[in-house]
Design a protein around this nucleic acid. Structure first.
Lengths: 254, 254
DNA sequence: TATAAATGTTCAGTATCGAGGGACGGTATA
DNA sequence: TATACCGTCCCTCGATACTGAACATTTATA
């Protein structure tokens, strides 16, 4: 099959492809899966058997599903993450205080990853959730991180992923982005004005560790009609900044 | 190397061993990891490179860590799980109502898996968390499931995993277990009297789907001194049963 | 009910590809 | 300065993962 130009252990690549396919298909039989990943049935079957043995895949009612053993990995990985340790409870605070959605993001492989999320009483129904990986340039959270990364790292990321438009408001021009990142560095606050999701605005602040490198960012997000005027421009930014400071203090004393 | 007697795709098995090792070690370098999984450095390195390429592993500061991409798999797997869909919010209710810890369990590969957990205002500090996999016979949650599984399935599980003692109170005798399961079927309520963790008691109820098969169980757990007398024997069981009923109604109308 | 189609599972041969040893350069330790 | 350790790369060989076809089993169709 069309060589993916990817050098790496083939069997391992395929195993993960299969697991991902299983989640996409919401469970599947051997044949359906084999078709989806474009492999002979027997190969697919062989992988499924292996994965089932390791308990990462579950075989029930003639269907294979991704198992909950992945929860163990992801939960421990998350708990070991400094950002989650120090910021998690503050995200809850922020959500409660503002009534909106608050979220935590970190960067991995040049993309933004939602690490944690908390919903306030008025929180918008939103389809973003923990574990989602998004282009880093199209959210307040992502831009807050990007702004404070070392310049070479930042360029490398933009180089590798480009500035694809996710929305009509997404920043797609490098110069525009550079300028905005400059502002963000100054203010320590990033905005997202419907750059990823229509009708959604957000405010985010970076979180720096002891040696002043970004380990992630925190945000409040809500429907545009509620995110306006003084609240959007002053009130929320101040609240977010305050919380970010508290978190940074947590880091010092950890 | 000592053959694990496991037939399956070796490379895949090893890849997961490595990921697990990474979480156990809380990140590690190539050599440390290689020692831990008893493989040549080069082999370990080869795997790490592959895993990093798939983004399931992160390479930072000369250390390899399990990446947060696992969150994507586990979160979608969880969301696709019927139990989580119908019961999640009720767990929050239960926790809030009782002030204690409430949890959700399902069965996979003969073990009990914590799918969700919510803490009430008085909730005990507890070291059990989402994703944990425990022997199914040593918790109220597990016994509630076990009691309502088809007999052959139940036997198969007990056969395969045995009744190992996790604690001085753990049930280790099959006849004792059978009797208790009989009671549970009658009451639709299972108890855990410090059978897994010292000082912790809990009350659980099974959750049955449309065709009357167990898809999981729900519980309240708290410190023994608070879980006593009428509250433990009547009040909480009734509350739990009530919530379980609500959940089962949710299933009908889904 | 018989037939057909589709699915899951097993098997064995073969080319492939992962395993592992060793070497090289870099970095910390003594 | 010397030594030890680490991470990365390379290459060769033999185990092994892939394949394709055949068998079994269930579901759909006539």
């Amino acid at each position: 099959m069309a060589k993916q130009e990817s050098i790496g252990i083939q069997a391992v690549d395929r195993a993960f492809d299969i697991v991902e396919a299983l989640t996409e298909l919401d469970g599947a039989g051997v044949s359906e899966l084999a078709r989806h990943v474009d492999l002979p049935k027997s190969t697919a079957h062989n992988h499924l058997r292996t994965l089932e043995q390791t308990e990462y895949v579950v075989h029930e009612d003639g269907e294979y599903r991704a198992g909950l053993k992945f929860l163990r990995i992801s939960e421990t990985a998350r708990k070991q993450h400094e950002l989650y340790q120090v910021a998690r409870s503050e995200v809850d605070h922020l959500a409660e205080k503002t009534g909106e959605i608050s979220a935590l993001m970190t960067e991995e492989h040049g993309r933004g990853v939602f690490v944690y999320r908390s919903r306030g009483s008025e929180a918008a129904r939103i389809d973003t959730c923990v574990g989602d990986r998004v282009p880093i340039h199209c959210t307040a959270l992502g831009k807050a991180i990007l702004a404070f990364l070392p310049a070479d790292r930042r360029n490398e990321i933009v180089e590798r992923h480009g500035l694809t438009a996710v929305n009509h408001n997404t920043i797609t021009d490098r110069d525009v982005l550079s300028e905005e990142l400059e502002d963000i560095r100054e203010r320590k606050i990033a905005y997202d004005d419907e750059e990823r999701l229509n009708g959604l605005r957000s405010v985010a602040a970076p979180i720096l560790d002891g040696s002043n490198s970004v380990i992630g960012s925190i945000s409040v997000a809500g429907p545009t009609h509620r995110m306006q005027g003084n609240r959007f421009e002053t009130e929320l930014p101040e609240t977010v900044l305050g919380i970010a400071n508290v978190i940074e203090l947590n880091i010092q004393h950890a």
